[in-house]
Amino acid sequence: MENQSFRSNMLLLEGLKVSPASSVPAFVLLLLIYVFIMVSNVGLVLLISTERSLHQPMYLLFCNMSINDAFGATIIIPHVLRDIFISNSERYIRYVDCVVQAFCVHLYGSTSHTVLMIMAFDRYVAICNPLRYAAIMTNKMVVKLSVAAWGTALVLVAILLGLTVRLTRCRRVISNLFCDNASLFKLSCDSVFINQVYGLGYTVALLGSSICSVTLTYLKIAAVCVRSKNKVLNSKALQTCTSHLTVYVLLLLSAFIIVILHRFPRLSDHRKVAAIVGEVALPALNAVIYGLQMKEVRQRVTNVFHCKQTHSLSNHKHEQRLH
């Protein structure tokens, strides 16, 4: 009886189909990517927080993205790394842990969109209303926008998972690398009509609002650039907006691919690959794209490495003199 009760709270994850020969290379590759994600994103947050010249709304808002990317990678990658060396029949996870992981996964995905929306607003004010930028984008406004981005995502995801937790379960196999809302409510034999309606509304509201706001923002920015015919302004707008738009398009493609593949159970293996690529590639690329595009950040990173090289060289010369 105890064993039955224990098993009823345990779910089985399908995971990736990795051959024994490919397990070690896959583990090493994922581990290196995870280390890069953490070092690059945490490093950027520390750099922006310690450099007073980078205490500007654009960079402070970007910290939200770096923190969210580090959070998203930590939810998924260590879990996948652990499961690579575990056989398919032993990849168990407790139901409570699965719900927590699903909540964090959706919070990461939702916050990615809301953060990019507030960053688009910042670029709109900076380019379309530069004279009032300092008055509008105060530290108080940055805090409000950041709280709104995280708070909105938190409420939407809490309702999403709350509707799923109420369902009774008659299955225990999660056909995914990690837990998410769709995989959880598929475990139930109850009617999931409310879940599907809210899930669809949640997806449409989140993607629709982000697409509309970003599209309108960039249309207005483009109109300002065309009317101004100012090469300096256009160059600055292109430099600051290219990185934001690139990250947004990649996020949007990843979201659409995963949502579409969830509708085709036969393509579950393709969905797993798309999911892990999205969860791994985006956090790694975001830091690179922004780090390379933002001139001030690039200069600070270069200065840090230059100072370290100069310091090590001076120490080496000092040691040679002593000898």
Rank of each mutant, 00 (worst) to 15 (best):
A275N: 08
H318K: 09
A21E: 12
M10F: 06
A134K: 14
M137C: 08
S8F: 14
L12S: 10
S183A: 15
Y198V: 07
V288A: 03
Q309L: 13
I136S: 03
H318E: 09
V125I: 13
H244A: 09
V277F: 14
L253E: 07
K140H: 05
S312L: 15
I118F: 07
V249D: 05
A126Y: 05
A223S: 13
F103L: 11
L253P: 04
S243C: 15
S191Y: 11
Y133H: 13
K308P: 02
S254M: 12
I37L: 00
K144P: 00
V155W: 00
L16M: 10
T302H: 10
A120I: 01
I37C: 06
L163N: 08
L131N: 06
L81K: 01
S183Q: 04
L285D: 04
R321C: 11
L60G: 03
S254G: 09
S312Q: 13
G291H: 11
Y59I: 02
R266I: 02
V143N: 08
S191V: 06
M58Y: 05
L233G: 03
A149W: 04
K144L: 15
T114I: 01
R321H: 12
I221K: 01
H55I: 04
R321S: 14
N68E: 08
S175Q: 01
G208Y: 04
S66N: 05
D122R: 03
V28M: 12
P283R: 06
F193Y: 13
C128P: 07
G15L: 12
D69C: 14
S40G: 00
Y108P: 01
C179H: 06
A223R: 14
V192E: 03
L292S: 02
I221S: 06
S268N: 05
F121V: 08
I84E: 00
I37Y: 00
V192Q: 06
L46Q: 06
V35L: 15
N286E: 11
D190K: 09
R271C: 11
I289Q: 03
I289E: 00
H244M: 09
I86Y: 05
R7C: 04
I76V: 10
H270V: 12
F103A: 11
L233F: 12
G291L: 07
R298C: 10
M58P: 04
T246L: 09
K317R: 14
